[in-house]
Design a protein around this nucleic acid. Sequence first.
DNA 1: CGCGACTTTGACAGATGTCAAGGCTTGTGG
DNA 2: CCACAAGCCTTGACATCTGTCAAAGTCGCG
Lengths: 247, 247
Amino acid sequence: MRAPITAALQMFVDRLLTRSTLADDEVGALLALPGRSVVVRTNHDFVHRDETTGHACLIEEGLAARIEQLSDGHRQITALHIPGDMADLHSVVVPHTSWALMALAPTTVVQIPHAALRDLTERYPNVSCAFWRDCVVDASIIAQWTVSLGRRRAISRVAHLLCEMACRYERSTEPSLDTFHLAMAQIHIADVLGLTPIHVNRMYRELRETGLISVGEGKARIADWKRLIAIANFDPSYLHIADPAHS
Amino acid sequence: MRAPITAALQMFVDRLLTRSTLADDEVGALLALPGRSVVVRTNHDFVHRDETTGHACLIEEGLAARIEQLSDGHRQITALHIPGDMADLHSVVVPHTSWALMALAPTTVVQIPHAALRDLTERYPNVSCAFWRDCVVDASIIAQWTVSLGRRRAISRVAHLLCEMACRYERSTEPSLDTFHLAMAQIHIADVLGLTPIHVNRMYRELRETGLISVGEGKARIADWKRLIAIANFDPSYLHIADPAHS
DNA sequence: CGCGACTTTGACAGATGTCAAGGCTTGTGG
DNA sequence: CCACAAGCCTTGACATCTGTCAAAGTCGCG
């Protein structure tokens, strides 16, 4: 495919530069990565569970989820990935998957061969470090989700997820825009938060009726940031965004 | 201190070798790492939240937890670390902590300067890769906890944690020994599983009365592995133990 | 127009939290 | 050696959050 892979790679590099410092030649090498663009429909897997992959998936457009399925049919989403995220960068060092990657909306994915990424890490130790750091930030987000699922009430979990996604889309700890793209069905929200879609609906209604948010049609509008953050107990530092000084 | 740091480093290297291949000189360099041994009492923090650390903590003896505290006082443990684990290896690339590390039992910790670890990663790309991989496996465990907290009932969560700790202590996917050291108070189990200590106690009783386990005095004995694994819905592959062939 | 996916709502059930009290061990100091 | 306190475990009664079941409404799309 001759899709503009460069644009996706540029988003990825920008993401890395949020948390790491890269030299010009390192950026150049990253932008020269090979890749194949693939379109995935909503609710379709593009990486299946229990297989060994040979490429990592960079999200170019849409929304992707890492999802685990229990034998009783219950599903749990353990990560959300927006454009610019390398959804399974960790597969470079642990290529066997115990989860699946699924599109939650019409999604374009760039498949980048592990071989090319490994070659980069061998030539540029600093890039290897940046990849490692990216995985650590990912883990930091999962850890925060663990806190949500373990110790927050449903209303607080919903509010927290809205705050997180707003910040990640804005790439800032100061959520300026009050409207952002949130193309998740309520059942997907439920699978992120360990709730039932019915209860997510109840919580949405409560947040709506108290004038905090309005959601629908793939968009979320946050009407009262201050109160939403208070309900969510939200502290964006775990996202490691816009932190200018890192070692 | 002149404590036998070498023994702790050897445990750490053994842990790395479970998942990565290391050359002799790389192992030698790892075993030559400098470090300072520190004893921590039960329920005391040895890394505090919201600080920038200059060293990573290798657990030599005892049991440590990564713990997050909400402003309403609720606490959630997001990782458990047994002897041989480098509890905060990720701090090498993201040195600012949003969590605390606490001893759940009398614990000995070896503090290893980030500078020494960074020096190693620069000299040996393969060691850098092994560290990265170790962090990815850590994240895999947190992801599985997310599944537990989101989609398993309390009884299943308790069973799952017992299975996990048994496997991690035995370092095998085939839990051979039915008795293992589990020096966690019920309140700590509760803080791992997102439950109240009262409910953990109820679940312990239920597992005890159906003849699956017996716990107490710092030990756990598993009487019926087969049924426990069934209740837990346990699949040890996420631990990445005893996996001989990795890229 | 009709189908399918998603949302919304109500009634009820069940799992887990909260509150309260008592028992058991362990360590400390008189 | 004994008394006492502190921490942890155990149990019961009750409250509440969230899940389950069922049904109807909305929207887009073929």
